[in-house]
Design a protein around this nucleic acid. Sequence first.
DNA 1: GATGAATGAGGATTCATTCAT
DNA 2: GATGAATGAATCCTCATTCAT
Lengths: 203, 203, 203, 203
Amino acid sequence: MSSVTDIAIAEAGRRARTKARNQEAILAAARQVFAELGYEAASVRDIIRRTDLASGTFYNYFRSKEAIARALAADAAERLRPILRAERDRAADLEGWLDGVIRAYFRFLVEEYGRAAGLPQVRVDATPAQRAVFEEVRESLTRILGDQLAPQADTAYLTAGAIGIARHVGEQMLRRAPPDPDGAARFAVRLILHGLPAVARGA
Amino acid sequence: MSSVTDIAIAEAGRRARTKARNQEAILAAARQVFAELGYEAASVRDIIRRTDLASGTFYNYFRSKEAIARALAADAAERLRPILRAERDRAADLEGWLDGVIRAYFRFLVEEYGRAAGLPQVRVDATPAQRAVFEEVRESLTRILGDQLAPQADTAYLTAGAIGIARHVGEQMLRRAPPDPDGAARFAVRLILHGLPAVARGA
Amino acid sequence: MSSVTDIAIAEAGRRARTKARNQEAILAAARQVFAELGYEAASVRDIIRRTDLASGTFYNYFRSKEAIARALAADAAERLRPILRAERDRAADLEGWLDGVIRAYFRFLVEEYGRAAGLPQVRVDATPAQRAVFEEVRESLTRILGDQLAPQADTAYLTAGAIGIARHVGEQMLRRAPPDPDGAARFAVRLILHGLPAVARGA
Amino acid sequence: MSSVTDIAIAEAGRRARTKARNQEAILAAARQVFAELGYEAASVRDIIRRTDLASGTFYNYFRSKEAIARALAADAAERLRPILRAERDRAADLEGWLDGVIRAYFRFLVEEYGRAAGLPQVRVDATPAQRAVFEEVRESLTRILGDQLAPQADTAYLTAGAIGIARHVGEQMLRRAPPDPDGAARFAVRLILHGLPAVARGA
DNA sequence: GATGAATGAGGATTCATTCAT
DNA sequence: GATGAATGAATCCTCATTCAT
């Protein structure tokens, strides 16, 4: 009835949408820029230059450069962990789980960095998100291996090995045009399960 | 009569020694600082602050921050490559080669970063030295696997997988006090050769 | 309904004006500082210290110290050359031309450096602008002298002589309070036309 | 008789000679470097690099960079002033005096800067030496012109004009290979005496 | 006196962040 | 909320000068 109120409501809706759109634009730009230049070399101006916003606007959405980096990492972890968790709960055996998890990760990589000119700079195991993923993977591995796991088995090394494979094979995959997450995942899974000689014998 | 000359010579010797000591001190400090903070975040002042030298002195030894980073990388590559090469020439089979190479690499890591408060920041496969190592490993793998290597085998993924294991297990090893390069190497080799289930069953 | 727009427009106007004012303030300060200390000895901080701006602000207006020096030179040349050219086209005879040109130059000097604490550092004939002026003057002289100019006349020396007079007499003029560009110009013209004995005999 | 004493004396002589040679080497190098780069851009290391001495040695001979610049200026003035003075005392008329003085100055320029890759950076009338020369010339002019000089004649402008001619024509002369100090001097003298139209008519 | 490494103040420039509009 | 100019701390690097030998 009250057209003024209506306008206000419509207005509020539009604003909210603009806000969401800006936030996403900044995040996307930052994702690219951090991937290309690394956290330190990337400047806030590099980021906002890839949006149609002004430099000051950045600070309406993120408190600082560090904050957006953390947000980005949290966001990635946020999107990755439910997948990992789901796979863990669903998985009957090691192979199934590995296959699910790695495939999901590689698809995520392609989606996240596939169009970037550069590749993500990785500080191995340095960020909280990475630490979280490490522990998540370790726990899943331990649970799934169950009593196949000898008491003296070194689960930290074991997890590190599996992650190392996934990370580096994933990295190689991103180099290719077009990237083939499923093929790369199959490769990584077989490598992890049967060792290099098996993989060398061919897919 | 030659006492003056003698003194001059002694003097020259001392100076040369001081220079060598300073150079090594700066390199060591830089190694630490780069490892802890990464190239970009590390400042020249961070580096010289860990020596008892003045900021200007840095530039008597290295032309720039970039130069010392290159020197460090070159030095590491210089020390690593002959080892890799020697192992390749000596190795009879894959196991022997892997064992030699990874053990050497892990010992190198301990020596290089064992005392560092931090861990090396890794931009996967980004530096020329790293690229060179990648190719070196790929070539060695290809040669050693010989006709066990199926034609359609993907040697880039294969190399990436092996290096990923070595890198991440090595990284875990550095976390431990004291680090055990030989134990970690044994683990990595078995993982690479036989796959994760074999390792899970225990050493 | 357009009050918002109006404000935005007013705002834009004010900002533009502030920008123009700052730019001019920096240019004026630089003009002074370069004149007093010379390009090399002048520091960017010397320049901004004479404005009420912060050091970083300098770089919002000029890319570098070199850039502002070039801008200053270009600006001076820009203002001087059309005058010289106009005089050349208008001048009927040598005396008319000299009078016009030197008067214009002296007025320019007073305007440009009259309020400066120091005097311009001159690297004789070194900058492109100075070279351009030299050639401009030489060409004008050659044309105006016409067939009074003997074939073997050395126009480079001749131009140098005229410019030397203008420069140094102009310099003396700036020393005086208040400077008298027209009187000094009359003097310089007579000196150039009739030689020192004529001038010694009095104005 | 006492060979020890003899040796000591000979030794002292050699040392003195070495000192003089070093001092002269440093001065010569500085002359070149200042001429090529200007005072500010020239570094002490630029200077000593052109000798076979070590950087610290510079400070055994000159207290500072500024000091050697002053020494150089003083030295030039020292060598110029007696010549000017001699010419003044000898000169019968303006022409004779001008001819002597300018010829001497141009020869001095060739000797001083003839082999330099660059040309001297001139801050017009800025250094004490230049001021001294200015006053010297003004005084000479005044005396020689005698009663040809009208009371209201402006001797500062007059001197400035003459020096301007000498300076800029001298500068042009240094550009030529080989430089011709006598020809250039003849030109400058005629220009000063009879004005530009006379010179335009040819030598 | 000669040496040349060490010193540290100072210079140009960048950039995360603030804030008036 | 959006804007973009202003800010000044921090960075890399140079260089006049000192000093132990």
